[in-house]
Amino acid sequence: MIGSRVTTLAASLCALGVLVAGCGSGAPAPEPSSLAAVNPRPEGAADLAPVPNIAPDADCDDEATLRPLAMPPPGAMAPGTPMARIVDQGRLRVGVDQNTYLFGFRDPTTGRLEGFDIDLAREIARAIFGDPGKVELVSVTAAERVRALATDKVDLVVRTFSATCERRRQVDFSTVYYRSGQSILAPKDSGITGAAQLAGKRVCVANGTTAAGPVFAAVERPTVLGVTNWTDCLVALQQNHVDAISGDDPILFGLAQQDRNLRIVGESIGTDAYAVGIRKGEDELVRFVNGVLERIRDDGTWQRLYNARLSALGPSAGLPPPRYVG
């Protein structure tokens, strides 16, 4: 009885051994896999075509905006205005980012959206309702900003949204609330020290931004990869799909904070002026938002928000002066 059990156990161990090493049968070990490691680009990434040269519109001032009027008390918006409609809907809907450190990002410890743009959206809600919490933060990509306004998905866009003459054909803008340069972010050991070293390289930008223009304007154009979000550029660089990233200085600073092997290099290759995006034709709302920006300039709120969110970028030059036209 015991012998049969030993025989059975031995047979079982041999059967298991066949799976592992042939149980002494001399069967060769399986060949190692010849499949290459998969390293896909970020979803939606694609090479971009050069930006066509468009003659500047001599009649367009990309930073011009409407002068604010007397500000009504919170909750007492004039009937028939966009602000009254917002009061009736019970919250201010604002298109924001959740992937750009410093300006609009999701805090991993709290799950809350934080950043300079988020704080600015809350200040506009405070002016309408008297309560900065009455805001619905709607995450939109850079490429979705104009459409989000045109389709009434949001009331405003506060998302590192640069005021340009091309965009003014579709949306209106507040006065500029932050001015930025555009630079290059590259690995410290890459040998890239500025735009001159981008010839023959691969550079990442976010789709729907103005970043591709200055990159394509280089004497020898690099290959430009467009992605959905700036964090996709960081992944593309870390996985060697690109050699560098080009974007606004605070955006690049935020990416460098997430990977200390990267640094901002060279001189500025462009400038951007962030403003609040507003649906075309809503002049009362443009004037109202400009009134909010005037208030936070005068009472020190803008500087307080800068100190809390953007002080790592260095001393502030203050809220840029407005260019009112009517």
Rank of each mutant, 00 (worst) to 15 (best):
A10P: 02
D243F: 05
V138L: 03
P72R: 13
R168L: 01
R126Y: 08
A196L: 11
G133Q: 13
N290W: 04
E166C: 05
P82S: 13
I296W: 02
H241P: 03
T210N: 05
A142W: 01
P222M: 08
L225H: 02
I251Y: 00
Q98P: 00
A163G: 14
A15F: 10
V325D: 15
C165N: 07
N261P: 00
V157G: 10
R221K: 14
E220D: 14
D59K: 14
R260I: 04
L113K: 09
L19W: 03
W302K: 01
G194Q: 06
D47F: 11
R106Q: 15
A275H: 08
A125G: 04
A212E: 09
I86N: 11
W230R: 08
P40G: 01
V96R: 06
R122K: 14
T228W: 01
C233Q: 08
P52G: 11
P42I: 03
A256T: 01
D107L: 09
V94T: 04
S162W: 02
E166A: 13
D248I: 04
E282H: 12
G300D: 02
L120C: 05
R106T: 15
A211L: 02
V94R: 05
L19I: 08
G26A: 06
P40N: 05
V286Q: 06
M1K: 10
G254I: 05
G22Q: 03
P50Q: 14
V51T: 11
V276L: 13
D88M: 05
Q197H: 14
P40E: 05
V154H: 06
A212Y: 03
